[in-house]
């Protein structure tokens, strides 16, 4: 029997392989349509469709009048542990900054009281912060913390103190586990403005509760994350976790 790869699929895979094998880095222009067609003996329209697919997947991007380029790889939001993202991005040598957009004390709504396991109407701190990566706003985060369990948190917390350090050093609570939900939402005008994207751009919407070692909630948070900058990665290694 004669096994074949459909020509359209083959062109996509050749192109992907070409980028990988030649280690084409971000913003590198790929060879011209003519050269690639000649090299692989395929038609212009087949190649164009292959490029369309990889543009649709975010692997390549087109610049009118100058060609097709390799996209900047997205930053991995590695889902390994609580608050792992910041440390990991630092290790990658990225410049991180955060800015408090608003901070105030509010009464816990039904949702907040349920998530933090506190009575309805109990006072909570609400922080809305914007985080930037390499000087680009990337993440808009709203965090709720129980005022009773964490008295004077607002007097101690500044933009320059990681919240995790405060919980650990002052309140002796270690962030130990959490469950995060991930879905997709679209930037409102205000969110778009803060994140410097166009309104209605798709964003990751994540929410979760971080708990301490006694399984008591420490924070309830919601994040809007730019999808052009980030991807979520989950690595599970059985051999490592069994050790």
């Amino acid at each position: 029997m004669d096994y074949r790869i459909p020509p359209g699929t083959e062109a996509v895979e050749k192109l992907e392989d070409f980028i990988a094998v030649n280690r084409l880095t971000a913003n590198t222009r790929i060879p011209s349509e003519r050269d690639l067609c000649e090299m692989w003996g395929i038609s212009r329209s087949t190649l164009r469709q292959a490029v369309d697919i990889l543009v649709g997947w975010g692997v390549l991007y087109r610049v009118r009048g100058s060609g097709v380029f390799v996209s900047v790889p997205k930053i991995s939001r590695n889902m390994v542990g609580v608050d792992s993202m910041i440390g990991e991005l630092r290790q990658q040598g990225r410049v991180l900054a955060k800015k408090i957009v608003s901070s105030r004390i509010i009464e816990a709504t039904k949702q907040i009281s349920k998530k933090l396991q506190i009575p309805l109407g109990q006072k909570v701190y609400e922080y809305i912060r914007i985080r930037s990566v390499d000087y680009t706003p990337a993440l808009l985060e709203t965090t709720y913390i129980d005022c009773q369990r964490y008295p004077d948190f607002d007097k101690r917390y500044t933009e320059n103190t990681p919240m995790g350090d405060l919980f650990k050093n002052i309140y002796h609570k270690k962030q130990s586990s959490g469950k995060e939900h991930i879905s997709v939402t679209y930037a409102s005008e205000n969110e778009a403005h803060l994140l410097e994207v166009t309104p209605d751009s798709p964003l990751f919407f994540t929410s979760g509760v971080v708990k301490d070692e006694q399984d008591i909630p420490i924070t309830y948070y919601k994040q809007l994350i730019r999808s052009d900058l980030f991807k979520f990665v989950s690595e599970i290694d059985k051999s490592r976790s069994e050790e």
């Binding site: 649709g56 997947w57 975010g58 997205k74 991995s76 991930i182 997709v184 798709p202 990751f204 999808s227 991807k231 979520f232 990665v233 989950s234 690595e235 599970i236 290694d237 059985k238 051999s239 490592r240």
Partner: peptide, 11 residues
């Protein structure tokens, strides 16, 4: 033994 997943938003 191991598994890695990547989730991204695309057009």
């Amino acid at each position: 033994s191991s598994m890695s997943q990547t989730l991204e938003i695309i057009n």
